[in-house]
């Protein structure tokens, strides 16, 4: 690619970080994290079973919080 797309991070309310554009996703040692799609959703609730990616668990946590209220 001759020009890089600007990277955009959408902070989804009560949801993940949606990352789109040109970026590298690396672990603590700088090694690439396996990635199978251009735009990714990164877990922000800590509950995902496929971290660093979102698996929708934040919705279950929200439902549990609502039920507990």
């Amino acid at each position: 690619m001759t020009s890089k797309e600007p990277t955009e991070i959408v902070v989804c309310p009560d949801g993940p970080l949606l990352v789109r554009g040109d970026f590298d996703l690396v672990d603590g040692d700088g090694a690439a994290v396996a990635r199978s799609r251009e735009t990714v959703a990164l877990c922000r609730c800590g509950g995902s079973g496929i971290k660093p990616y979102c698996d929708g668990t934040h919705k279950l946590l929200a439902a549990r919080r609502k039920a507990a209220q």
């Binding site: 993940p16 949606l18 199978s36 979102c54 698996d55």
Partner: peptide, 16 residues
């Protein structure tokens, strides 16, 4: 398995 990850992305794009 693929849909767990993919649709967690898609649902954000599809709604907003």
């Amino acid at each position: 398995d693929e849909h767990v990850e993919a649709d967690s992305v898609h649902e954000q794009i599809a709604g907003r």
